[in-house]
Amino acid sequence: MGDVLVFAEHQHEHFPKSTLVAINAGLEMARKRGAQCLVAVLGENVESLAQQAAKYGAAKVIALEHPALKNYLADAHAQALANLVKSIGAEYVMATATARGKDLMPRLAARLDAPMASDIITINDDGTVIRPMYAGNGMALVEMDGPVKVITVRATAFDAAPEASSPSPVEKQPATLDQASLKMEFVNFNEIKSDRPQLTEAHIVVSGGRGLKSGENFKTVLEPLVDAVGAAMGASRAAVDAGFVPNDLQVGQTGKVVAPDLYIAVGISGAIQHLAGMKDSKVIVAINKDEEAPIFSVADYGLVADLFKAVPEMAEEVRKLKQS
């Protein structure tokens, strides 16, 4: 049986929770297939990062290094990773379905002539997987053939890997790359900085929709509640399209999938594309003035009210509660 290789995405010399999720899913697959789980960290100089990845119980962590891997670029990363997959004879290559995982893994699959299952939520004992389709309206049982299979996992469907009792061995390897074939160039990354928790990692998410009516109202009406409960902020597509908030706050089928302990939807109608990104949250609260809004059909607690009155009141109540 071939092994499992996990692509460990990193940012700012750090592994986000989504990477620990990929490692955990890789360990689960390895357990179910009676194989080993290896982890690959790609970059220019990543040995110390690889030491960090060694805390989670993988059979081995490989620091795959090359100057052309300094910034993430799909062509170089796919090539380096494909060569590693071939050299170790891995059967499953796994990553989380983050923006980078989605960008890289299909390219890798094509290079390996391998089938790929995207955004899976379950790994079965026989190696089949389950993935949502149709904005979460259908759950597909998927079977893949061939010596190599590529998988991205949904970050909310698996836990982060816990720390193991002893560290994995770390092996440094130079990546093999045909540099003449690489044509992509990294220009810059315009990062949206925020002091709030990451949308996909937060325990509480407060999202605003078109009902907020302006970007200014997001700041003056919604953000005080976001901060009072210590949440990450999200939004509907309508709010993003209208320019109220940045793109990367979009929750939904074609944005981010979140499943926090508490999701508070404010002025969001609950279109199927939005529900696809949040309906696995543990507790859902909806605040909407229209009692017929579909969001109430998934809400544990629904408040029919004008948000411009209810949201400041709620922020105030929470602040009082926290002070007492």
Binding site: P115, M116, A117, T128, P132, M133, G136, N137, G138, M139, A140, L141, V142, E143, M144, D145, K279, I284, E291, F296, S297, V298, A299, D300, Y301, G302, L303, V304
Partner: peptide
């Protein structure tokens, strides 16, 4: 890659107002 079966997901129950 083959889709062997397509099933509806478990339905989330609405709570209360």
């Amino acid at each position: 890659l083959r889709v062997k079966e397509l099933k509806a997901p478990p339905k989330r129950q609405a709570g209360r107002k």
